[in-house]
């Protein structure tokens, strides 16, 4: 016997766990039952998920290439025998000297 979810607020509070798949089987069934008859909650789920998708697409951060290089040079200077990639053995052949406090000019 599954305990029903009558309240949309309860449905919303379970969404995080539900989408992550960490909700118990019973609660999942209860939530899906609620969703099957509650249009506002269906819309809510869609927009809730979309929020994550949009944020990921707009905010994804790539490590800047210069930073990869400066890190490699720093470690090369600090750790004997450190080579950046054993396959290429190249640390980004930049002219600048490794400077332990290398402050790159970033905006």
């Amino acid at each position: 016997m599954v305990e029903l979810i009558e309240q949309c607020s309860e449905c919303v509070s379970l969404l995080g766990d539900y989408l992550e798949g960490s909700l118990s089987r019973e609660r999942t069934t209860a939530l899906e039952t609620h969703l099957s008859r509650c249009m506002p909650c269906i819309t809510f789920v869609r927009t809730y998920k979309k929020t994550t998708v949009l944020a990921r697409e707009t905010l994804a951060a790539q490590m800047p290439r210069e930073l990869v290089t400066s890190l490699q040079q720093f470690l090369k200077g600090a750790i004997p025998g450190f080579t950046c990639d054993s396959k290429k053995g190249d640390c980004g052949s930049s002219a600048q000297q490794p400077d332990s406090s290398s402050d790159t000019k970033k905006s």
Binding site: S9, R46, T47, V53
Partner: peptide
């Protein structure tokens, strides 16, 4: 989100912008 005392959506989120978001993406 805001809920009524009995836990229903206060302003039902009729507008499903999740679809529109694709166009504006």
């Amino acid at each position: 989100p805001k809920f009524t005392a009995d836990g229903q959506h206060e302003e039902p989120p009729h507008s499903d912008w999740s679809q529109r978001a694709d166009e504006k993406l």
